[in-house]
Design a protein around this nucleic acid. Sequence first.
RNA 1: GGGCUCGUAGCUCAGCCUGGUUAGAGCGCACGCCUGAUAAGCGUGAGGUCGGUGGUUCAAAUCCACCCGGGCCCA
Length: 1084
Amino acid sequence: MTYPELPASHPELEEGILRIWEEEDTFHASLRAREGEPEFVFYEGPPTANGRPGVHHIISRTIKDLVARYRTMTGHHVTRIAGWDTHGLPVELEAERQLGISGKAQIEKLGIAEFNRVCREGIFTYKDDWERLSQRIGYWLDYENAYVTCTPEYVESVWWAISEIERKGLLYRGYKVVPYCSRCGTGLSSHEVAMGWADVVDTAVFVKFHLIGDPDGARVLSWTTTPWTLPGNVALAVGDEIEYLKVRVVGDSESGSGKAIAEPGEVFILAKPLMERTLRHEVEVLEVMTGADLVGRRYEPLFPGAVDADGAEAGRSEGGADGAGGAEGPSAAWTILPADFVTMEEGTGVVHTAVMYGEDDFRLGAQTGLPMQHSVDGEGRFVERVPGGLAGGHVKDPEVEHGILAWLTEHDLLYRSEKYPHSYPHCWRCDSALLYMARDAWYARTTAVKERLMELNASIDWNPAEMGTGRMGEWLANNVDWSLSRDRYWGTPLPIWVCDADEEHRDVLGSYEALAERVGALSSEFDPHRPDIDEYEWDCRSESCGGRMRRIPQVLDAWFDSGSMPYAQWHYPFENEEEFRVHFPADFIAEGVDQTRGWFYSLLALSTLLFDETSYRAVVVNDLILDQEGQKMSKSRGNVVDPWTAIDRHGADALRYYLMSVSSPWLPKRWDPDGIGDVERKLFDTLRNTYRFFSLYAGLEGWTHENSGARPPSERSVMDRWLLSRTDSLAEELRAELEGYELTRAARRLSGFVLDELSNWYVRRSRDRFWATRPDAETKQAARDAFATLHETLRTTAALLAPFAPFFADWLHRALAGESVHLADYPVSAGRIDPDLERDMRDVRELAVLGRAAREQENLRVRQPLRLLRAVVPGGRRPSQAVLELLAQELNVKRVEFLSDTDDIVRLVVKPDFGRLGPRFGASTPEVARLVQNLEPEQARRLRAGDSIELELGGEDVAIAPDEVSITEVASGELVVRSADGYLVGLDRMLDEELVAEGIARELVNRVQRLRRDSGLEVSDRIELGIRGSDEVESAAQEHREYIAGETLAVGVQIGGEGDGGSEEWRDSELDGHAVRIGLRRAR
RNA sequence: GGGCUCGUAGCUCAGCCUGGUUAGAGCGCACGCCUGAUAAGCGUGAGGUCGGUGGUUCAAAUCCACCCGGGCCCA
C-alpha cells in the first residue's frame, strides 16, 4: 500500500472526516463496540436552545467529549444523551419580545394559552445551531434520544420527584423576599435586576419610635430610605455591642435646618457614633448604654392596625424561608431585637424592620417569630388595614408618600426627612422602582438535609478541588431552603392542589394516573402545561370538608427540571427502571462555574432529597472565555465572538486543543485567535510534516507496515529503542493524568512529546536512516527498523491524541492503520520503558544545548567538524557510548570525553544547600553560606570525595557534610566552555588541515543539494557532478569524493578540468572565501 | 456589601499547596544555523522591582494581614 496524501488544510481534513463519520456512523459504531463493557456514566447538562451557542460553550463541550472518548477507548460504554432545557424565564422573555408585549398584565390579557404556545414554538429556535456547532467540533452526543424538559414524560418524572419531597414532609409553603415589580406583577431574577439600576433621589426619614414605659418618655430614632415600608414595621434592630446614648434636647433646632421637629426636653435614643450626623438639636447625654440594654424593650406601632400582632398570612408560614421555624407567639412584635446586620455607616444605628419588605428583615422575622403579614398588596397598594387614608394608594405615588409623612408629622413620629440620592433597582421593562417584597412561595426543606449535602459534596471529586470546598462548600454551609415556585407561565406546573376551605388540605400529585384518578381519564393528547392544567379541580377528600381542590398558580423553578434529568431522562419511575439504575449516579459531569448554584446544586440537592446519594462522582468545572481585553462577553457589550470564524480558519482540533492546553479549564481565558493559530502551526503542522516525511520515504522505499522486515524493538538502534521507551512512558503518563482529570497537564505533555521528542529529536536525528543511500544489508535493515519505529509511534500518537483532537487523530490513524482511531484502545505501555536510556538521552540533550551555545558563541558553524568535546554530567553519570554517538553527530565533533576532577582544566565550585543548612544554622546561615562559597580547592576536593570538612564559625569548629552542599565542575583553559545545572561542555576549537578539508566537503555537499533542489530534481534522482575551485577546495573534494557522491546521489564526480563537462546546471558560489563552481546533470 | 477566584517577561501561561537565595516555558522580537520534512526544520540572545504595602522567617513569587485591579457567584 501507499500512505495517503494529506488534505490541503486542517479544516478540509476535518470536513472529510466528518463525512466519513456520517457515512460509517462511527459514533454508534464506537458505542456498539463497547456494548456489554462497564458503563461510564456521563450526564449532559441541558442548554437552553433559544439562544445561540458561543465560544464559551465550546470549552465545556470539549471537556465532555474528551473524557467520553477517552473512557470509550479505555473499554467503557459511554452513554451520552443530549438534553434540552426548555422552560423558564429566558424562553418567556423571548416570547414577550416576539409578541411585542411586556409584563404579566399583558400576558394575561393575551391569554396564557397563546403565550405558552409562542413559548413552546421558541424553545428550539437555535437547536440547529447547537447541533451544527456540536457536530462540527466533534462533540459526539446522542441527539436522537435527547431528553426535553417540557415533554409530558419528563414533566411526569418531575412531578414524581415533587411528590416524593412532599411524602418525606419536606415540602412547605412560605415566603421569599424578592425584587418585585408591582406594575408587571412579578418578581425579577437577579440577572434582570442587574439590568435596571438607576440613580434616583428618594426621601429618607428619621422616625421617632415611642418606647412603652420609659421613665423619660424616650423615643428611639430610626432611619429608612423607603418610608412606604413603615406601616409594615414590626420591630427595631440594634447591635448588641454597639454603644447607644439616651439624650435630652436642651435647645432649639439649629439655625438653617428648621425641618427637624423636637421640643426642648424631648428624649432620644440612638447610636453614639451616628449622633452628630443625625441630630439637629443641641442635647445633653442622660445615659450611655449598649444595644443589649435596649433589647426586649417595647414600643408603640407607628400605624396601629396595619399589621395584626398575631398576624400571619393565614397559616402559610410553616417555617420561614430559613426553615428556622419556631414562632414564639406575637410577643416579639414591636420590640427591640438584636441583629448582626446593624452598621454604623448611615442611619441611627437602629434599623427599622419590616419583615415582609427586606431580606434581612425577613430572616430576622423568621428567626424570632415576628408577624408575617403584608401591608402592601401585589399591585403595590396599601391594604385596607393601613390607617391614615393610605389604603388603596400605590406606595410609590408621590401623593401617598406625602400622606405617609403627614401621618408621621401629625402623630409626632417624624424627627426629620432628607433627600437621599442613591442607586436603586428598577424594572428593566417598565422602569418602575422595584419593591423588595415577601412573596408567597413553595419550598423544599433542603436545610433538613444540609449535613448530608455537605457530606455528599465532600465525596465528589471536584476539579479543581477548591471549587468543592470553597464555592460549593460555602454555599452549602449557608444553605437555605430551595424556593421552588415561580409566578410565571411557561414551566413545569407545580402539581399541588390546595383546598379552598382549608389550606392545610392539599394534594401533591406524583403521576398523571393520580390526576386521572381524581378527574377521570385524561385525553391521549394530555399536556400538563398551563393553562389547561389549571382547569382541573375536585372536591376535597378530607372528611366533611366540602372545599374544592384547586391548583396553585405557580410553575416550577427550571433548575428543578434540569436537576431531575438523572431520572427524568428515563421517565423513571414509570419505565426504564433498569436504565436508570445503571446510569445513576454519573461518573462524570462538566459545566461552567456559573452552574455551582445552578445545575451542580440542583442535581446534588435532588439526589440527596430523593435517593440520599450524590448524582455525580466527579466534576470538571470550567470558567468563562473572556474577550481579548479580559471582559466578559455579552450581547450588550457587543464583544461576543463567533466560534465559526476560528473553526473555519484553524479547524476544530486546534480550537479544542488550544482550550485544553492554554490553561486549566477552571481559569478564565482570554479569547486569543493567535493562540489558536499557534496550536495549529506548532502541533498540527508538525504532525503533518512528520507524517509527510514518513509517507514520502516509505513510498520511495516501498516500505509498508504489513511487510515491515523490521527487527524486534529490542534489537533496533538506540534511537529507536529510546523513542519506543518514550512512547510507552507517555502512554502511562497520559493515562494517569486523564484518569485524574488533569486534562491540561496531559495536553501539554502530549504536544511536548510530539514537538520536542518525536519531531525535533527523533526524526531530525534519524533522517538519513530513512533513505538507504548505500544498498548494503545493514543500511537497509536500519531503514526498515526506522520506518517501523516511526510508523508505530505515529500510530500510537494518533491514539493518544484521539480524545483531544478527534479529527486529525482519526485521519492519521486511518492513514497508518486503515481503521478509525475511535474504535481503538487507548495505548498502554508495551513494556519497553528503559529508564537508564531515557536518562542518558536527557543528559545528552542537555549537553547538546550547551554545545550549540558554545558553537554559537564562537561562530563555529555546525558543518565544520571539530576534534573534541569534553563534557560533565551531574552526579558523575556517563551516558552510554551509543547515545554519545548521537551527541557527536548533533554537534559534529569527532570525539566526546568526560572530564574528571583531577583534570587541571577543572575547577570545583561549591554551593551551599540552603534547604539543609538553613534549619541547622538558623540566623548564622548566611555566614556559613559565605564560608562554603569560598572554600579552598583542597577542601572542595575533599567534599567531592565524600569527606566532611571543618569550618570555623564564631570561634567554633563546625563540620560540613558533603550532602549539605552541591558541587559542580567548571572548566577553564583553552576550551570554549558553557555550563548550566551541573552540565558542562568544553569545545576544542582548534582546526587542522584534515578537519578543514572535511568542513569544505560538507559545504560542497550543501551547495550541491541546493543546486539539486533549485534545478527541480526529485530527491531520488541520480546525478553527474562537476566541481571546480581553488586547490584547497579541489583537494578536499578529492579526499572526500565518496562521501560527497553518497550524500548527493552522484553516480560520477568530475573534479577540476575545463569546459562544462556536459552539465545542464551550473552555479558559481563562494565557500570560505574560495570561489567554487558546481555543475550537475541528471544521470540516466 | 459578602463569598470564591485570578494578578509572574510585550502576549498566553508554569512555578505557589510542601518557603531555600540564579523565577521557567511557548509565542512575538533580534541575531544566527540548517536544508533529502522546504509556503518546512533548529538554535542563541535580549526581555520580569513575581499587582501594592506591611508582617512572619536565617530565607518569601511561595505563608499571613490589609489594600488595588480583573472575573464569577450571591446580596
